[in-house]
Amino acid sequence: MDLARHWRLKDQRYRLEGTVCAECGAKFFPPRQVCTECKSTNLKPHEFAGRGELYSFTTVSAPPSGHEEFVPYIVGMVKLDEGPLVEAQITDVNPADVKIGQRVEMVTRKLRAYGDDGVIVYGYKFRPIVNGS
């Protein structure tokens, strides 16, 4: 069930916590231990705002095991406003309404469950930005 593994990743999964290089300011999601820009190992936690635009997307109908119950689902790459790309599911939208370049925002959803008696893994997905104010 990978209990410790998913527990370990919750800051990233729930709140898009990545890292920022204390030396050169480069921002990373997922977090890195070594800066790709200046090789510094002095990186600090950095929470991303969770908004960006869709870089690419596709639909999965032949799923890897553990994801069967969700098909068909949309997966995508999101270019966060702070720079990094992140891969995640795109939710709350019909495939026909998804477009490259679309503005999206992070939501927290169920990523998968380990059967009916196992742990439920929650984490980030993205959806077209809601403007319901």
Partner: peptide, 13 residues
Amino acid sequence: PGLDEDTVTMSIE
């Protein structure tokens, strides 16, 4: 609710 939603995810939003 959608397939990826439950009381927890809805509460979070």
